[in-house]
Design a protein around this nucleic acid. Structure first.
Lengths: 216, 216
DNA sequence: TAGCCTGACTTACACCGTAAGAATCGTCAA
DNA sequence: TTGACGATTCTTACGGTGTAAGTCAGGCTA
């Protein structure tokens, strides 16, 4: 039950609240369900009112990515002498944040993150790795490789974004349709669940990457 | 000039042609511009006619991903004794195909590829790596890590999908706005272009990954 | 030749993002 | 107290979207 409100009466909205509500909405209803009208409805406000706080829907979505990225690294401590464990923590924190907001994940993969906040984080990573003795170009490579791998892997892990969920069965659900003669290895994968542990696969791949860069 | 055609007269359309046209359309106009009406227009047909060949738009998009994936591995030769160079070739072929159809890239990242064709490819990879002496679970890990990294890295490389292009400046274009005092490392990155070579970064990361898995 | 089937067209609906303008409020000056 | 003003919201409207439902014409089979 949304209280009636006439034009002119303030809703007491703020840019922050709009982004908060949008993130909530996407988390619960999925990205495809997000529309300006529905978001307005969730805030007890008409759609056009939102345009006082956000220039357009694209900017709203960019803000969502930003928001999630911020939460990812809020609690990350400063780098010590060793950059490897620090980068590892960075990767896992990023994955945790993305998994916590799967609806935003496709956006995170698609949109370059250029906000001041994101730039500040990049700067911090570069500084941290340089302090650990890594040349600038190499630091940039490591950060980018870790970030892009994390996003790519988490995208695959989450699979179809919520809101699309259920419209198409994933690999597991199709186990019975799979012809064991044509697909012996895939059926074995599903039966034994070998190679389907995302947690350990992700951790191992990150360790391999970091060890490789550290050795070079 | 689209020829007039009355109801009943065949347009000689086929499922293949619909997908071909959709891929063309996305490559030239970008993914956001793709609508059933416009795709119909490109084929000289009403929008609803497309629903004779495709159950809905989502299936059309899934088909696009499938199409690109197929082209990626069409020319890939069979695995020999050594799986490492074979996986490397797989990774580079995938990246090439994705870069050739950047409009489809966001879809490739978002949608699980479950088509028969995709399953056949997965089966082939698993078989190839097992033939090279890799245990099944490990083979699954390697394939998934290479694929997800490739997609994630290429997503970042392409940045905003065409059709969105130009709506937001990327890092390079903002070099002059960047405060050298607050962002000394980022400004240096842009000035020296250190760590901005996607080709070599990708190749190196793939080699590190494969070497790491081969060593374990 | 009669009739059905297939494929295309037409219409319609609910929804979308958002441009433009009207309506209403709190606040402050006269 | 009154009036004007600026801020914030609502209303209306436009062109676009995916697609369900119904209609219509031509080619194939009986």
């Amino acid at each position: 039950m949304v209280a009636e409100r006439r034009a002119g009466t303030k809703a007491g909205l703020s840019r922050e609240q709009v982004f908060d509500a949008a993130l909530d909405f996407v988390d619960t209803h999925g990205l495809p369900a997000l529309s300006m009208r529905k978001l307005g409805g969730a805030l007890g406000v008409e759609a056009m009112t939102l345009y006082n706080y956000v220039p357009n829907k694209d900017a709203l979505l960019d803000g969502l990515v930003d928001r999630v990225m911020e939460t990812a690294f809020a609690g990350l401590d400063e780098p010590g002498d060793e950059w490897v464990p620090w980068m590892r923590e960075f990767a896992h924190a990023l994955r945790r944040a993305l998994l916590a907001h799967p609806g935003v994940l496709p956006l995170a993969g698609t949109r370059p993150v250029n906000s001041p906040e994101a730039l500040r984080m990049s700067e911090r990573w570069l500084a941290g790795m340089r302090a650990g003795g890594v040349p600038l170009g190499r630091a940039m490579d490591v950060v980018n490789v870790v970030a892009t791998f994390t996003i790519g892997h988490t995208l695959a892990e989450v699979g179809r974004t919520p809101g699309h969920e259920g419209t198409e069965p994933n690999l597991d659900d199709r186990a019975d349709e799979l012809d064991p003669v044509e697909f012996p290895n895939l059926t074995e994968v599903i039966a034994t669940r070998a190679g389907l542990d995302f947690d350990s696969r992700f951790a191992e791949a990150i360790d391999i990457l970091l060890a490789g860069y550290a050795a070079a």
